[in-house]
Computed example of a mutant assay.
Amino acid sequence: MRKIWYLCLMLALMAAPAFGSVAHAKDMKVGFVYVSPIGDAGYSYAHDLGRQAIAKMPGISGTSYVESVKEGADAERVILNMARKGYDVIFATSFGYMDPMLKISKKFPKTQFMHCSGYKTSSNMSAYFGRMYQARYLAGMVAGSMTKSNKLGYVGAFPIPEVIRGINAFTLGAQAVNPKAEVRVVWSKTWYDPATEKEAAKSLLDIGCDVITQHQDSPAPQEAAQERGVYSIGYNSDMSSFAPDAHLTSAVWNWTPFYEEVITKIQNGTWKAGSYWPGLEENIIGLAPFGKMVPQDVRDTVNARKAEIAKGAHHVFAGPIYDQNGKEVIPAGKVATDKELLSMSWFVKGVVGTTR
């Protein structure tokens, strides 16, 4: 009997530290830095949906965010403030936050830093993005199918590889179903400026574009299309509520599965800092529901191509692909590498505009 009692006592003592460690485990604080307002129905809004999902996860003591943070010195101040306040994970969601975050990451080695859309990393700073060009290609297929003028308008933010890559993918998608389609580009040099972006969209409508899309956070180009009675394709999130009679679909972000995976792995100690670029196969990007005006045959064609891309049977940037001047940039039989995609600085044939 005494032997049994002693064995039970030892088992209890051995178990006590384990139970104690769970009960007193440090809950994580997670911070987000946004370049635009979360109410813009755009890029920051999409990220914030992911933040809200994280807030409901076990082991999270709280999440917070700072919106409309300018790239540069302002971003450094906000990220540093979060690190000093003991945030365990900090997500910075704009390209211009990269260098400030890298600098700060070296001063806070116990914090995990996550930078969206950049390429620099450190032992505790990861770079992540999604293969949005895949959804852009699909959206281009819709636009190419629905245009009557064969002129598609694209309001671009800044001439950086991310935006150029999206314009090229959109153009290739349009040409896949309509070889006569061309894409006219106007640069707004903004991420979020509804008035400027709406005027840029109007300038494209004035030259005969009958489908408008954009790479900015506001739904202003959608509204311009609605007012003119032509079609539009949104970005970041489903923008149909802003242009119900114009909206064909949107190329959308779904950050929730990625953010939940990151937090889970950090919690269980399996997260490894690095570069991450998931796509359709992981449901990080996709299309919003089609508008009622999109015919069933167009939907079927686009959904079939979506399935091919998701399983790796079709590559958006597979040769032969030619630039604006007719030069073969990606030869037949070749697929652009990630390095080539991440540094893309040229337009494909069919784009009317300059990369500056």
Rank of each mutant, 00 (worst) to 15 (best):
V298A: 04
K3A: 14
G279C: 11
M14G: 12
A18F: 15
D88Y: 09
Y137F: 12
M114L: 12
N303W: 10
S21F: 10
M10K: 13
L152S: 01
R305K: 15
N268V: 14
Q296D: 15
H247N: 11
A318P: 02
N254C: 13
A25H: 07
S117E: 10
R77P: 03
L152R: 06
A83D: 01
Y322C: 04
C116D: 08
Y45P: 05
S145F: 01
T354A: 14
I321G: 00
P58D: 04
G144C: 04
Q216D: 13
L13P: 05
A16C: 15
L49V: 13
T301R: 12
L7S: 14
I233K: 05
S122C: 05
G20E: 05
T93Y: 01
Y192S: 06
A16S: 13
I309E: 08
G140L: 03
H24V: 15
A181L: 09
P37D: 09
M28K: 09
I309S: 08
A83P: 03
I90R: 02
K120P: 02
I321A: 07
A195H: 03
S117R: 06
I90K: 02
S145H: 06
E76L: 09
T63A: 03
Q214C: 13
F19R: 12
K334G: 02
I285N: 05
V183I: 12
R2I: 12
G153P: 03
D238Q: 04
G312T: 00
A176M: 12
T213G: 07
A75R: 05
I60K: 01
S105H: 02
G333T: 04
F91K: 01
V33N: 00
D217V: 02
I263T: 08
K189R: 15
P295N: 10
C8A: 15
K26I: 01
W5L: 15
V89Y: 08
W277L: 14
A310P: 09
T354C: 10
E260Q: 15
E281T: 13
G269L: 02
I104L: 11
E162T: 08
A83V: 07
N236C: 13
F95W: 06
E71Q: 10
H215M: 06
F129A: 10
I167T: 03
A201P: 00
K56Y: 02
P17N: 02
V294Q: 09
Y154P: 08
E261Y: 12
D48S: 11
G96A: 11
H215F: 05
S105P: 02
V298G: 05
G62N: 09
Y259D: 03
A16T: 15
E76Q: 14
G130H: 12
S237T: 09
S21L: 14
S343H: 11
S44H: 00
F347M: 08
G326S: 11
D48V: 11
F158G: 05
V185T: 10
A174C: 12
Y43C: 00
T301Y: 04
I54G: 02
K120G: 11
A225G: 06
Y192T: 02
G50D: 04
L9T: 11
V348S: 00
V302F: 01
A246L: 07
V163T: 07
W346Q: 09
I284Y: 10
M344Y: 01
F91E: 03
Y231W: 12
E199K: 11
M146C: 07
Y137N: 05
G156P: 01
A201I: 02
E199I: 07
